[in-house]
Amino acid sequence: MRWDFASVFDNTDALLVGAAGTLRIFAICLVLGLSLGLLVGLGRYSRNRWLHIPATVFVEFFRNTPVLVQILWFYFALPILLPFQISPLVAASLGISLNSAAFSAEIYRGGIQSIETGQWDGARALGMRWGQAMRRIILPQALKRMLPALTNRAIEIFKMSTLASAVAYVELLQQGKLIASLNYNPIEAYTAVAVIFFVFLWPLVQFSYFLERRLRRDE
C-alpha cells in the first residue's frame, strides 16, 4: 500500500469549500448556542417558576438526547408541521445550537451561582436594579470563571459540526466523502480531513488548557 496524497491535493478547492462550510456552521452555532444558552441559564437560575420550569425541561430534553437524533428530527420530521422546507444548514444549525444552548445554560447557571451573595448586596446598596447588577457586577465576574468551560463547549460545537454531513450539508467531512468516492482514495481523503480538523482544533484545545491553568492559579 502506497500513500498518495496527490489525489487529495488536486481537490484542494473542494476542501476549501468544505472548510468554509464547517467554519460557517461553527460560527452560527457558536453565536446562537452560547447566547441562547445564557437566556436559558438565566431561566434556570430564576426563582420565577414560569421561567424555571420551561428552562429546566428544555435543558433536560436536549442534554439527554443525542445531537444526531435532534438534527434528523429537524430535517425529516419538523418540515411536516411547517409550510416550508428546511435546508440542511438550518436543520443542522438548529440541532447543534439548541443542544449547545442546553449544555452552556448549565455552565452559565453554575458560574452565576458561584458568585458570592456579597456582590449582589453591594450592587443593591449602590442602588442597582437586578438587571443592572447582573449585567455590570455579576456576569463580568462569572464569565471569567466560565471561560474554560465555554471554550470546551466551543470545541465540542466544532466537532459536532461534522454531524451536518448526515443531512448532506457541505462541510469538510462531506467533501472528504466526495473526494474519496471520486478518486477511490478513502485512506488519503479521510486522513487529510482528520488532520485538518486536528490543525483547527489543536490550538483551541491548548488555549482551553491555558485558561484552566490560569483560573486555577488565580483562585
Binding site: M1, K159, S161, A180
Partner: peptide, 25 residues
Amino acid sequence: IEVFRTTPPLVQLFWFFFALPILVG
C-alpha cells in the same frame, strides 16, 4: 489521547470504516 480527544468522532468512525480496512487489508 490528544488525537482522539481533539478530532470529531464521526471523522474517526469514517476513517476506521473506510480507510483502515484498505490499509491493513
